[in-house]
Amino acid sequence: MRESLGYGLMLFGALFDLFGCVGLVRLPDIYNRLQAATKCVTLGTCMILLGTLALCGFTAVGAKIILCIIFVLITSPTAAHALAKASHLSGIRLWEGSVCDQLEEDKKL
């Protein structure tokens, strides 16, 4: 039971990681790519870690896994925010199919 739960979580985590990579290739500009990469990779990594936690239980390794999950959840969106803000500041345009850019409009004021 515990083993199948652990391996199932790892499988789905790896799948979400794969979707993130597909998004990285298919989506048009840096902002969309960051979205796919951040979301999928964060949840995928967390699910793989949770699967490991299910396999080894709340031992010394389990405590480290919980810590890892917390740090991944904090750092991954922060890194995405830093990258997105930096690219916008350095003037990278949105994809031509985008509907609006209110940050650009507010910067001109």
């Binding site: 979707f19 597909v22 998004g23 298919r26 989506l27 048009p28 500009d29 902002y31 969309n32 796919a36 916008h88 949105l94 994809w95 199919g97 985008s98 509907v99 609006c100 850019d101 209110q102 940050l103 650009e104």
Partner: peptide, 13 residues
């Protein structure tokens, strides 16, 4: 991502 037509309408709000 997996949809063949890539149904996105991105923008910054």
């Amino acid at each position: 991502v997996l949809h063949p037509a890539l149904p996105i309408r991105p923008g910054i709000v």
